[in-house]
Write a protein that binds this DNA or RNA. Structure first.
Lengths: 265, 265
DNA sequence: TGTACATCAGTGAACGCGCGTTCACTGATGTAC
DNA sequence: TGTACATCAGTGAACGCGCGTTCACTGATGTAC
């Protein structure tokens, strides 16, 4: 778990008077209670799957009555939103940690990021389902919620590790089928903190890579590749290495003589 | 819908006396009722999502009482199983139809298959979620169910379109990172009607390709790529074309002078 | 062709369950003076 | 330091709802003789 996690996802109803002031005893207890509720909910999801989540079950496992939960979350939907937000955050944390853990410069940080993604998903299959599976019954996700932020955080990591060291010119000249003018235009209109700072071909490539990584993990987590059993990590690693090499082969060397940072085995 | 569909997924409790004998009036009515129930259930899933499926809701939309459904399905689980089986079948049908529709030999049948997969998923997002999303609450999937069959049918299509015309030697020599002995052994032990007839590197490649295709479709169906909005079909097509070319580039030409069937633009 | 009987589709009534949410309350914790 | 008051965490009781499943039944359809 991330050190920054406590409090970051806490939906305290009225914001504390001074944001940076030290928390009072009551506030600390409240925050602890919120964490306890989230943990119990995650545990329940881990046992019964995301679609069995209910306030009553969470309350039961905490040894309290349901009504008490309403002091912390105005409704079930708000609890679900907090859980989804936290799952996105934890996943992004896991990816970041995996990237940071690469000491050997001969190893690919991009593959490490993908493996971090997979490892979190496999370790937390039900929470992965919570964010990437079918939406929960009756749950209406808040539009433009805080989840967007975690998603962007993660896509920024992948953008950096996949394209770091390459110039815009190189990326724009990537050897992929031509994009239609309408698509180019749409991709250029993306927000800069999304993928908008990349030239359109690079956006297409990163979406494709994201799909590739995500698809392999999804199939595994949802049990569709159980026939390869214990070797899914190896298949995943090979696929990601191959993907990375194929992507970099399609990106031309930088102008001039010197090549930019190239894919590593 | 496939012509072979009527009856193929019908879970009539006692099998009709002679399998190929013409159906009696009663049997035809029964089969029609089963189809009506499945349709109503699919419609309900389409409106409310797979996780809201309930016998009572289906009965309500048919204008009958719940209890009547128990004449056709012994329990909710059996209805769900029939729906999942039918979804797999319909998806496999859609892929097959898409492949068969390719008249121009200059077009890639593999890309057409992938586009058929995507198109069905986008047209039936909730049914796609039913088979590839989180399992339904309290639903215990039958082990070794008839779904396995449809999955194999589909993987056979992809196997044919991806590797058709290539020799075992070529596939075995595919240029991908070396597989561990344990993995090779496991892949060689797969059943022949699964992917067992392929050399291990080819199995790794097809799993990777499946993940790639499936991941892009999943992300779209579950709403995670809504920011590229209306152009997902184009991004998908480009990704699949690129994937196909990259795969074929890694497979060496056949022994002797003549090259086997090569990727088509 | 007629009749007795079996099969089947469907209903009415009821079961026990878990759910989210609301209301009025109690007692403990913290704050202002 | 003491006291009056506000805030807060939690409970008891209850609401209306939808769910899967069972039971005993009725009337229609089909079959055997």
């Amino acid at each position: 778990m991330s050190p920054a996690e406590a409090g970051s996802t806490v939906p305290t109803s009225p914001a504390p008077p001074a944001p940076s002031a030290p928390l009072t005893l009551r506030e600390r207890r409240r925050a602890a209670a919120v964490q306890e509720i989230l943990s119990a909910a995650e545990e329940h999801i881990g046992r019964e799957g995301p679609h069995s989540l209910s306030l009553r079950a969470v309350a039961r496992s905490l040894g309290m009555t349901v009504q008490a939960l309403y002091h912390y979350f105005p409704s079930r939907d708000d609890l679900v939103t907090a859980l989804i937000t936290k799952a996105y955050d934890d996943l992004a944390d896991a990816v970041q940690v995996a990237v940071d853990a690469v000491a050997d410069p001969g190893l690919s940080r991009m593959v490490a990021a993908a493996e971090g993604y997979r490892r979190w998903a496999v370790a937390n299959p039900e929470r992965f389902q919570l964010i990437y599976g079918a939406p929960l019954r009756h749950y209406a996700a808040p539009t433009d919620g805080p989840t967007t932020q975690a998603v962007r955080r993660m896509s920024a990591i992948f953008e950096r590790e996949l394209f770091g060291g390459l110039t815009t010119q190189q990326l724009a000249a990537a050897d992929i089928p031509p994009l239609s003018p309408a698509l180019r235009e749409e991709l250029e209109r993306l927000p800069p903190d999304g993928l908008g700072s990349l030239p359109p071909p690079a956006v297409a490539i990163i979406l494709s890579a994201w799909g590739h990584m995500h698809g392999l993990v999804s199939l595994e987590v949802f049990g569709h590749t159980s026939f390869v059993d214990t070797h899914q990590a190896e298949i995943f690693r090979i696929a990601m290495h191959t993907m990375l090499a194929d992507i970099h082969r399609r990106i031309p060397p930088a102008d001039g003589a010197a090549r930019a940072r190239r894919p590593r085995p």
